[in-house]
Structures are given as C-alpha cells and as structure tokens.
C-alpha cells in the first residue's frame, strides 16, 4: 500500500520535474545559455493562468492557454531583450559573455518574481484544474489531476523527442548543438535556430508552470527554488543531455518522495542535494554528460 503510494506520487512529481528540466537543458545544449530566469518564467505561466481564471473568468483550458502564452512571450522577451543583446554586443569580450548572460538572466528572473509579487502579492496561487475528482489506483486514492499532470508531461516530452529526431527543424537543432559552425556553413541562419529553440523552450516551461500551478500551486517565492531544482536536475543528469535530465528528474523525484514518506516531509529535499554533492565529487560531468 505504502509502496504503491510512493510509486504513484513519485511518478507524478518526477514527470513534472522532467518536463521543467527538459526545456532548461535544451536551451543549454543548443545555445549554450544557462537561463537562470527559468523559475520566474514557470511562475509567470502559473500566475498568468490563475489570473485569467479568477480575474477574467476564463475556463480551465483557456486559462491554461493564457498561462502558456504568457510564458512564451516572456521567454521570447528573455531571448530578444537580454540574451541576444548580450550575444551581439561588442562591448563585452567573447569569453566573458557567458557570465554576463548568466547574471543577466538571474537578475531578469528576480525582476519577474518581484513584478509578480508586486502585482499579485506573494501569496500562493493555484490554477483551475482541467480534470477534477479522484480514482482508486491499486488501493491508492489518487487525484485525477495528478495522473493528468503526468500524462501531459509525457506527451510534451514525447512531442519534443519526435520533433527533435524526426523533423527537419529538429535535426538542425541537434546539429547546431553539436557543431554550430558546421550548421552555419551549410547555410542555416544560426539566429533563427536559436529563436526556434526559445519558442520550444517557452512552450515547455509554460506547460510545466501551468501544470505545477494546477497540481501543487505556486507563489512568487517559488521562482528561486524552481530554478535551483531544474539546475540541480540538469547538473545531475549531465549538462545539455536531455535523456540524462529525464533520468535525473526521476531520481530526484523518487528520492524526495521516499524521504517524505519514510523519514519526514521536513527533510524532503536533503537526500537529493546530498546526492548532487556526491555526483559532483565522483562524476562531475553528471550521469550522462558529454563534457
């Protein structure tokens, strides 16, 4: 009984982690940008969906769409106003740009977080659930919403996998992540590749944020921890490796759930962080990292 409970709850939360981390690692893998405003974007998606539901009276699906749309716009703003500007500027030396972009996205994330707190207070919000009610699953009363969350996460991840491996755009993305110069020599405009990645990223982060708001609820405070959790999952899985991130998301999700059930909910996050420290010592490139 307890075993089933851990299995089911862990699966839902891990799927959500996986989706959140996938976009984050994709951006890094293809464009080399560590986007530290990730948590802020996810929170914006959830709060956007919440606002659409409670201020404008939108239904659950329309609210979710507003949330994803808000995240997409913000992701493009992150790219267009911040990342791209820094990449193109000649005032900063090339080798220093990475750290400038890192800092800029961090500050941008804080700005998003503070703006949300200012406009909507820092109280937690929850997004209208698309499905309600509970089902008995192996004797465990499970909210349908929890299963729905896991399902959508997997559909999104599968969609991404198909897009990357089966479509032309996807193959260009893959090629750009391996050898950006090679791709430009083949006549592909690199900036358009980057733009495509940011669009995909915005949609993924938006879906993850809305689902998180539906399943658990978020507040402006969640922005920092969400970035940190995506970051540690991605580091654990190996920077830039999508499949590594997926595995790491499940390792972290189940480790947290096990701790919460078997030890105490108060220590939920500690074992996963310890594991991260150990991996850093023993295998600094992460589980499936290439470098």
């Amino acid at each position: 009984m307890l075993g089933w409970q851990i299995l089911i709850d862990g699966f839902a939360i891990s799927s959500l982690y996986a989706l959140g981390a996938t976009g984050f690692t994709l951006i890094f893998g293809v464009t080399g940008v560590l986007n530290l405003s990730h948590g802020g974007l996810m929170v914006a998606a959830a709060v956007g969906a919440w606002a659409a539901g409670s201020y404008w009276g939108f239904g659950a699906l329309a609210s979710a769409a507003v949330g994803v749309g808000a995240c997409l716009i913000l992701a493009l703003a992150t790219y267009g106003l911040i990342v791209r500007r820094l990449q193109l500027t000649t005032k900063i030396r090339e080798e220093e740009k990475e750290i400038f972009i890192l800092t800029a996205t961090l500050l941008w994330g804080i700005m998003i977080q503070e703006a949300i707190a200012y406009l909507f207070t820092n109280n937690a919000k929850t997004v209208l659930p698309i499905v309600e009610g509970v089902v008995e699953l192996a004797g465990v009363r499970t909210p349908k919403n929890e299963l729905f969350t896991a399902l959508i996460c997997w559909i999104a991840i599968a969609g991404l996998w198909l897009a990357v491996n089966r479509s032309r755009v996807g193959k260009i993305l893959l090629a750009a992540s391996m050898n950006p110069r090679g791709v430009t020599l083949l006549g592909v405009e690199l900036s358009r590749v980057y733009l495509a990645v940011w669009v995909i990223y915005g949609a993924l982060a938006g879906v993850a944020g809305v689902l998180l708001g539906m399943f658990l609820g978020v507040s402006s405070y969640s922005a920092g921890p969400l970035t940190a959790s995506a970051f540690s999952i991605v580091v654990l899985g190996g920077l830039g490796s999508v499949s590594g991130s997926l595995i790491a998301a499940y390792v972290v999700g189940y480790l947290e759930t096990l701790t919460a059930y078997l030890i105490s909910p108060a220590y939920r996050e500690i074992p996963a962080l310890l594991l991260l420290v150990i991996v850093m010592y023993v295998r600094p490139r992460g589980l499936l990292g290439r470098r």
């Binding site: 709850d9 939360i13 658990l216 059930y261 909910p265 939920r268």
Partner: peptide, 17 residues
Amino acid sequence: EVRFSPNTTDFTPIFNK
C-alpha cells in the same frame, strides 16, 4: 504531531500519513 517545512509544496505524503 506532524511538522513540515514552510517551503513544502507537495502535501500528498503529509495527508496520506
């Protein structure tokens, strides 16, 4: 007496317990 961290976001294990 169940005490949990104020950062807790997933209350499933707490309610199940």
